[in-house]
C-alpha cells in the first residue's frame, strides 16, 4: 500500500494556493472555518485510504 506523500506533489503550487485563498474571499471567520472543514472532508473522501488518512492526521498534529 502507498505511503503518505510528503514531497512536493502539486504542480503550479502558487496557482493552487491563490485559488485556495480566493475561495475564502469575502467570508467571515466562521464561514471560512466551515469551508475548511468541508474541504477537508471532501479531500479525505477522495483519498479514502484509512492508513493514509491516519498518517496525515499524525503529520498535521506533529507540526503544530
Amino acid at each position: 500500500m502507498a505511503d503518505l506523500i510528503t514531497t512536493p506533489n502539486i504542480p503550479n503550487a502558487d496557482d493552487f494556493y491563490a485559488e485556495l485563498l480566493a475561495a475564502h474571499d469575502g467570508l467571515e471567520d466562521a464561514a471560512s472555518n466551515a469551508l475548511n472543514a468541508r474541504l477537508l472532508l471532501t479531500l479525505s473522501n477522495h483519498i479514502g485510504d484509512r492508513k493514509i488518512l491516519s498518517e496525515a492526521l499524525e503529520v498535521a498534529r506533529a507540526a503544530g
Partner: peptide, 23 residues
C-alpha cells in the same frame, strides 16, 4: 484571519515536511 491561518499552517508544516516548502 483565514489567510494568516493557512500561511502559518504552511510554515508549521514546512519544518518537517518538504511538500509544504514550495507553498
Amino acid at each position: 484571519t483565514v489567510s494568516k491561518l493557512l500561511r502559518d499552517a504552511v510554515l508549521d508544516l514546512s519544518e518537517e515536511n518538504r511538500f509544504a516548502r514550495p507553498l
